[in-house]
């Protein structure tokens, strides 16, 4: 587990300040098929290596962040505010 996360708003913080929601997946269109929604809600890849997760900075700025990290080497590649990549339709 990466132990230091550099929040774009608060700076470098220990992981204890965050809670992890899970993989940052693209939300399907509201009219998407039931299979797509089932996959979005229940199915996860559980990859070994680099992937993106939603982290909530619960004890800091209380913003949802997307942490791009490697769960093998513990490298953190980037941390961005989830709102900054919000899709234009939302």
């Amino acid at each position: 587990m990466a132990s230091l996360i550099t929040c774009p708003h608060c700076g470098t913080r220990p992981k204890e300040e965050f809670s992890i929601r899970g993989a940052a997946l693209a939300r399907p269109h509201p009219a998407a098929s039931e299979e797509d929604w089932h996959a979005y809600v229940y199915l996860r890849e559980n990859p070994k290596g680099r992937y993106q997760e939603y982290w909530h900075h619960a004890a800091g700025c209380r913003r949802w962040l997307i942490v791009d990290r490697d769960n093998v080497t513990h490298d953190v590649f980037s941390v961005t505010d989830a709102a900054s990549i919000r899709e234009p339709s939302e």
Partner: peptide, 18 residues
């Protein structure tokens, strides 16, 4: 668990933290 050295956390700085 935050660096409070004046270079990192100067006078007037503030943030939420544990």
């Amino acid at each position: 668990a935050v660096d409070l050295h004046p270079d990192a956390f100067s006078i007037g700085a503030s943030a939420n933290m544990l």
